[in-house]
Simulated scan of single mutants.
Amino acid sequence: MTGRFDDAAAALGDELIAVRRELHRAVEVGLDLPRTQRILLRELEGLGLEITRGESSTAVTAVLRGGRPGPVVLLRGDMDGLPLTEATGLPFAAPSGAMHACGHDLHMAGLLGAAKVLAARRAQLPGTIVFMFQPGEEGYAGAQLMIEEGVLDAAGERAVAAYAVHVDSATPFGQLVTRVGAMMASASALRLTLHGTGGHAAFPQLAIDPVPVAAQLILAVQAFTARRLPATDQAVISVTRLRSDSAASNVLAASVDIEANIRTLSMATLETVRTQLPPLLAGIAEANGCRLDTEFLSSYPVTYNDPAETAQVLAVLDELVGAERVTRLPEPSMASEDFSYVLQEVPGTLVFVGAAPASGAVPMHAEITAFDDAVLPLQVSVLSELAWRRLERG
């Protein structure tokens, strides 16, 4: 089956691959991405878009106003990389100690391609499209910052729908994956500092040793998920950091630092964890003569695909590539995404597209992560078609 943008997207293939590889080498981490921003601004020049830059980051927002009246749709692509030293051996591998190991270079190139093919049809475009180039997805909540600075209303009125395409290095090439409802988990953290008294390792009876108490706290975290939460709406809580302040093998620690990563698929479950787990752990600490300081750090919310929008998205994807290449994900992923902030405000859908290299699937967020950038025309076609179809619906 053929979409209305397939030919135009295919014609841009070599150009987009070249830009993607340039972005790959120019990778930067966080919210301040000046080299990346310069490349994006260069590529957007001459398209007749209304471009604004972020105030607290190097975000780029570009507005395309169509020649026909209609609503506003937002398309998003994230910009930042990860603090990894690349070990792919690719000729365009990043040399800087940072790496696009989550495919954001492809996201930017795909969104640039959509801007180019849609701008070429401006006269027939039934509405307005906002292109959201967002830094700081990897833990910096860049989407939230852009929302605070007005990206959802950049066209003068609120977007009625928002879409994003995310590549996946472990999914077969060209396969499209999404689901109705919760798509990805929320991400939060619980930081604990457990205070004892320290002392001589030979005389533990003269001290309050926080280390065995820390072990009890870790076990209590695991029991909490099994016994305080419903089996149908579980959380994944992983203790990721554990460190005492003892610098010698014959010194009992005076304090232990613990950090847990928390993933949930509903905000109700997250609230249960936030309100019930810290006092439970504090009680265990107190029962053992220790004091516990707790800090709950809320991060990305649940990425929720609006049911009505996603039903329309699935119908479009089936038509574009055939139902056999569209996977309805049976369960959400426990990974997280800050496109969730956008989807809290505007109904929309996140779609994954398989970009596993010909050499075989590889994990994301790893030094060896690699993608087949021949997927870019498909990204462009999907983004463009979703935006156009939504504008036509009014």
Results as ranks from 00 to 15, higher is better:
6 D>Y: 02
12 L>M: 04
19 V>S: 13
22 E>V: 11
36 T>R: 08
38 R>P: 04
41 L>S: 10
43 E>R: 06
47 L>P: 01
53 R>S: 14
53 R>D: 09
55 E>I: 02
69 P>C: 13
74 L>D: 10
75 L>A: 09
78 D>T: 03
78 D>R: 05
84 L>W: 07
85 T>N: 14
85 T>V: 13
88 T>R: 02
89 G>F: 03
95 P>E: 10
98 A>K: 06
99 M>V: 07
101 A>Y: 14
108 M>A: 00
109 A>G: 02
109 A>C: 00
110 G>F: 00
117 V>P: 12
118 L>P: 08
118 L>A: 04
119 A>W: 11
125 L>F: 07
128 T>A: 05
134 Q>S: 10
138 E>G: 11
143 A>I: 03
145 L>W: 06
146 M>E: 07
148 E>F: 04
152 L>T: 11
157 E>A: 14
165 V>G: 02
173 F>E: 01
174 G>V: 05
174 G>Y: 11
178 T>R: 00
186 S>V: 00
187 A>N: 15
192 L>M: 14
195 H>G: 00
202 A>C: 10
202 A>W: 05
208 I>T: 15
220 A>K: 08
224 F>C: 03
224 F>M: 04
237 I>A: 01
241 R>E: 12
243 R>W: 02
245 D>R: 07
246 S>T: 11
247 A>I: 05
251 V>F: 10
253 A>D: 09
261 N>M: 12
272 T>E: 13
288 N>H: 15
289 G>N: 04
297 L>I: 15
298 S>C: 09
299 S>G: 15
299 S>M: 14
301 P>S: 11
302 V>Q: 09
305 N>W: 10
307 P>V: 14
307 P>F: 10
309 E>D: 09
311 A>D: 08
314 L>V: 13
321 V>T: 12
323 A>T: 14
326 V>T: 08
327 T>C: 07
333 S>I: 05
334 M>Q: 08
335 A>L: 12
346 V>N: 12
350 L>S: 01
352 F>C: 05
353 V>R: 12
355 A>F: 01
356 A>D: 04
356 A>C: 02
360 G>Y: 07
360 G>H: 11
367 E>T: 01
372 D>A: 14
375 V>H: 11
380 V>Y: 09
381 S>G: 11
381 S>P: 06
382 V>I: 15
385 E>F: 05
387 A>C: 11
389 R>H: 12
389 R>P: 05
391 L>W: 09
